[in-house]
Design a protein around this nucleic acid. Structure first.
Lengths: 215, 215
DNA sequence: CGGGTTCGATACGGAAGTGTATCCGATACA
DNA sequence: TGTATCGGATACACTTCCGTATCGAACCCG
């Protein structure tokens, strides 16, 4: 029997734990939000997707707004973490990437989660224009992302003796905005994942080429 | 009495005409959509804002989707027209503007309608990711805008002997995307109109500086 | 004037969503 | 093994919204 494990209790297959329920609700919400829009998604629809009733929902979140805020935090944290990790890897082994564009692409595409993720972020961005708390979280995340990208770009530009024609942080912001806009364009156009990737690479390269000189 | 006017019938203060009703509904919708989101805005709320009941709405539009499509078309047409007009003016008298950034700024800011307009466009862009017809209209508008901007930029760059490091159309797309992202950022940050304008000018200048060389 | 038409208001039935109060089963723990 | 607690389900009362069917007033034209 694979049971006793010191003080750590063994988890049942479907541990009816607060954490697990919250996680399932958050996951369901991110899908339904993307499909129906933040306002269009009813609490009911989210619960159904997660396999719960509204009783479970209100036992875990005070309102849809609270859930959204939690979701924003979760998504931001996880994107940021993945990008940070990737930046760390690249910092150790900078020789792999030949161009700034390639570098940026390999950093950012770990933080892009397919059409659903793009729609969700777009939805959140739009809603941040109305909701103060959401705005705060969104701006903090955006700034942190720019910082990470700027750091590694500055590093690598130095290593390869490229001169940036604008400050690294400005470049990072431009890249992030272009990345975002390009993802949005791709989804609206209904491009295939492969086409999206190549478009992203191309536009990033265009931008990178425009802002860098070899010394 | 200020009444008879030949064959042209004098308009009452509130001419109960189909066109006028549609226009008022569209105007109300653009406000309510921006405030509450496309899905969050009920037909009821739109009618109330316009000073009608739902009877009037369903007599003019088949559904909220139809109204949205009409609104998208109207907004796109009018933005495009204003920008085109501005481009025409600038083409005649190119000497006024000294920098590409200044030029672009003076073109695009005629098409930016304050926070409400920014939110509305963001809302539409997000929704275009789900709605095929909306996507079509949105993409057509975006492409037309890029074309206009590219034309005038190429013109002026030629006149001032500036070399573009990337094709004019690519530059135009970058500028439009950055403009959009910056407007969004400004609204989310709650910047004052003046601050928004200066931020737009600055970022456009940054981008323009990065992509142009004097010959 | 007068009859027809147009257009928005009113009225109605029904569907969907909300938040709460209560219940019940599973788990934890003595 | 018994009991307290926790977490999700169920039930309920209420509001909002929808779309249509019908009504009535203003306008147009003869």
């Amino acid at each position: 029997m694979d049971v006793v494990e010191g003080e750590i209790v063994t988890q049942p297959a479907v541990p009816r734990s607060r954490e697990n329920t919250r996680a399932r609700l958050l996951a369901a919400a991110s899908e339904v939000f993307a499909e129906l829009g933040l306002e269009g998604a009813s609490v009911e629809a989210i619960c159904e997707r997660a396999g719960f009733t509204r009783g479970a929902f209100y036992s875990n979140f005070a309102s849809k707004e609270e859930l959204l805020l939690g979701l924003m935090q979760q998504v931001a944290d996880q994107k940021l973490e993945r990008v940070t990790e990737r930046v760390r890897e690249l910092g150790e082994d900078a020789s792999v990437h030949r161009t700034v564009a390639e570098l940026v692409t390999s950093i950012l595409d770990v933080g892009t989660d397919g059409p659903t993720g793009v729609v969700l972020m777009s939805e959140i961005r739009t809603n941040a224009m109305r909701d103060k708390r959401l705005a705060e979280a969104y701006l903090a995340w955006e700034a942190a992302m720019a910082e990470r990208v700027a750091d590694i770009v500055a590093d690598v530009a130095g290593a390869y003796r490229l001169r940036l024609r604008i400050p690294a942080i400005e470049f990072a912001r431009l890249v992030l905005d272009i990345w975002d806009a390009t993802c949005a364009f791709a989804v609206i156009s209904g491009l295939a994942p492969l086409a999206i990737k190549s478009l992203l690479t191309q536009r990033t390269a265009t931008l990178a080429a425009a802002v860098t000189d070899s010394e």
